[in-house]
Simulated scan of single mutants.
Amino acid sequence: MASYIESSLSRDESVQEIFTLHWFAWMPVIIWVVLGLLTFGLTWLIAIYQGLSLKYLEQGLTNKRVILKRGIVSRRTDEIKLRSIETVEIDQGVLGRIFGFGTVKVTGRGISRLDFKNIDDPMRVKREIESVSSPIE
């Protein structure tokens, strides 16, 4: 089964990069599983929901746009065309600097903004987004 990003490509559009989550993004799931082992009940449902939410999250870059897709059964997508991007910023706390993860904030014209949270190697992601040339239309 093709991913959302691959299945939503337009003519002459290609995937440049799929942004992966850092292993640290899975820590809340691990904590809920441990709590589920210690107690029974709702903690297992929370762990399953959070795990599936991370599994079905897609974040990527094509030669025309940046894409963020969320949802397990339903689907919510946010996209910004490359030619509309105004800024690409990194938000990285102390743990993020130590372990190499952070949030990449892509701001477009108007009020559009995408937050790629818990991204592995946010500096590389920033460089990738900024280095892809805008499409000629």
Rank of each mutant, 00 (worst) to 15 (best):
T62Y: 05
L61E: 11
Y56T: 05
R83M: 08
I98C: 13
V34M: 08
Q92R: 13
G100I: 06
G51Y: 04
T39H: 15
R83P: 07
I90E: 07
V106G: 13
T103I: 04
I46H: 01
G108P: 03
L57G: 05
L45E: 03
S84H: 14
V106K: 06
D78I: 00
G96D: 08
L61A: 00
I31P: 09
K55Y: 01
T107K: 12
I80N: 04
L61C: 02
L82T: 02
K69H: 07
I80P: 13
T107L: 04
G41L: 02
E79T: 14
T43D: 11
R76W: 01
Y49S: 08
S74M: 09
F99W: 11
T87Y: 05
S84A: 08
L45T: 06
V66Q: 01
V73P: 10
V94D: 10
Q50L: 14
P28I: 13
K64V: 11
L37Q: 12
G100W: 03
I46R: 01
I85K: 10
V88G: 06
F40L: 13
I80D: 05
Q50N: 07
I80S: 02
G102E: 05
V73F: 13
I90K: 05
I72A: 10
I90S: 07
W44M: 07
Y56C: 06
R83F: 12
L37T: 15
I31N: 12
T39C: 13
G51T: 04
L82R: 05
L45I: 12
L61R: 08
E58R: 02
I48K: 01
V29G: 05
Y49C: 08
G71R: 00
E89V: 06
L37H: 15
V104I: 14
S84M: 10
I48N: 00
V34D: 03
T77P: 07
D91I: 13
I90V: 11
S84N: 14
G108Y: 06
L37C: 15
R75M: 08
N63F: 00
W32Y: 14
T107S: 14
G71A: 02
V88C: 03
G96E: 04
R83V: 15
